[in-house]
Simulated assay, not measured.
Amino acid sequence: MTPYFALGWIFIMTAPRAPFFPADLSIRASNAPIEIQRLGLVDYQEAWDYQAKLALQRANSEIEDQLLIVEHPSVYTAGKRTQPEDMPTNGLPVINADRGGRITWHGPGQLVIYPIVKLAEPIDVVDYVRRLEEALIHVVREMGVSDAGRIDGRSGVWVPAHDGWVDSKVAAIGIRITRGVAMHGVAINCNNTLDFYEHIVPCGIADAGLTTLSRELKRDVTTEELVDVSIAALDDALAGRLTVENHSFASASDPTKNLPKRG
């Protein structure tokens, strides 16, 4: 059985290294087209259960790779590294997810994409996450946020500080891999509210901010605008047609280092 990896919405990159195989090769085990499921607004627990079902089927070669396109009703989810001080102060319930990382929020106006993908061997978790990140950077820049990039030590897509705002995350990544199949995925803030983040320590990061494409571009950016470009970018990144580049503009501390796992 392939080793289990649980990496949360704050997946932390290790020091840069060459991937296990060339960047222009596909990281997927299959050459068949990825099947797209546009599911609309789906309860988080329901989507999580569905992912687990598909991941098992994919591990058993009963289905091809999938991309699930969803939005979630407002919900907090806590990864394995969530600390008591991270928890919401507004009394809303929290789902304890089987991913790594700390706490985050999902809700309407945030585009969430779950790739259920069987990875080629040797499995390179870091390369897989970097490819997802590259796809998100491409999408955010295509939408018009041209200076979006990486903060070394913290995952996701970040917008540099400007106009009195601190460095702010606009897109997040979180995965789990078991039996060689990836699940969970990516989330891009489009026109969602940021209010719910004010009641938690998002991803355990207290010294940075969060933003949306609508806020950055000063217009309403819907999730629908990003669906097709995101599907294409993810497909290209996994296939090696969109290769990982250096988009880092800063570095910061690892917010999960040496933290105990939630019981």
Rank of each mutant, 00 (worst) to 15 (best):
F196G: 03
Q66L: 02
R102F: 04
V229K: 10
L54Y: 00
P33Q: 01
R241D: 05
D65T: 02
D220Q: 12
R58G: 00
T223E: 02
N96P: 03
G101D: 09
P84T: 08
F21S: 14
E224W: 02
M143T: 09
K80N: 10
P255N: 05
R219S: 05
R141T: 04
S61V: 04
G109H: 07
A18E: 13
Y4C: 06
V42S: 04
P22A: 04
A120V: 08
R131C: 09
A32H: 10
C190K: 04
T89F: 05
G101Y: 12
A252M: 06
R150M: 07
I175F: 01
I175H: 00
V70A: 05
I27G: 01
D24K: 13
R81C: 06
L259M: 07
V140Y: 03
A32W: 00
A232Q: 15
I177E: 00
N192Q: 13
R131D: 08
V94M: 09
I173H: 00
T222C: 03
T223I: 08
W48A: 10
P108N: 06
T256E: 11
N96H: 15
Q37S: 08
N96G: 06
H184Y: 13
I27F: 02
T2K: 05
A120D: 02
G91M: 09
L234K: 01
G144E: 02
E35K: 12
R131V: 05
V157K: 01
M87H: 12
A237P: 12
R215N: 11
N191F: 04
C203F: 09
